[in-house]
Amino acid sequence: MIDRYAYATPLRTLDPAHKAGLSLSALGLCLVLNRPAIGLAVMAWMWILSLVWARHPGRLFAKILFAEGAFLAVSVLGVAVSVHVYPFSFGITRQGLDAAFLLFTRALGCAAALNFLALTTPWVDLLDLGQRLRLSPLLLDLMTLVYRFIFTLLESLERMRTAQESRLGYSGWQQGMHSAALLAARLLVDAYRRSTQTQIALEGRGFTGALTVLPNLYRRDKAAPILTILITISLLLLYWL
C-alpha cells in the first residue's frame, strides 16, 4: 500500500536524493536534539509535507503514525514503570514518565521522517539512490530480486492457499497447521524453480554477473533543499529557545 502511494504522489519524479536528504536530516536532528518537542515538531513537519507537498490524504500519515505509535507505546511502558525486586516496589515515577515520553517522541519523530521518505519514494528509486551512493552492487542486485520476488511469491502463496482451502485444508486447527507446513515447503520449491527460470531468462538476455540497468531520470526542485534548511532552522530554534 505504501508503495502505491509512493508511485501516485507528484513527488515521485523528484530526485530521491533530495527526499532522502530532507528526511534523513530531520531524522538526524530528532536523534541529536534530545527533547520531546523536537520529535513532535518533526512529526508535525512530516505530516504537513505529506499533506501539502506530497498530496497524500490527511488521514494516511496519521493512520500509519498511529499504528507505529501503538507499538511504541507498548514498548516504552517498561521505561515508564519501575519495578524493584527487593524490597519489592512497583510504580510510576516522574523521571520514568519523562524518559518514556522522550523515547516515545524521539522514536516516533524518526519514524515520521522515514514514513515521509517511504510514502514519496518507491523502492526502485531507493535502489537507484543506493547505486549513486556506491553501495555494493551485489547487495543492490539482491535487494532488487528480493523486492521483485516478494510479489511473485505472494501470488504463488495466494494461489496455493486457495487450492488448499478449496479442499478443506483449513477447516480445523490441525488441518490448518498441516496445510500451512505443506504450503511453506511447496513455496520453497516454487521459489527455487522460479529462481532457476529467472537465471535462464537473465542468461538469455546476456547476463554477465551484474543486473545492470539504466538509471531513472528525475527532476530537481529547489523547494527540497529550501525545505530541508527551513526544517533544520526551525528544529534548532525550538531546541535553543
Binding site: V124, T144, Y147, R148, A201
Partner: peptide, 10 residues
C-alpha cells in the same frame, strides 16, 4: 520469471 527489475523501463 523473466521480469526481475522493479520498473518496466529498467
Amino acid at each position: 520469471n523473466q521480469l526481475f527489475s522493479a520498473s518496466v523501463a529498467q
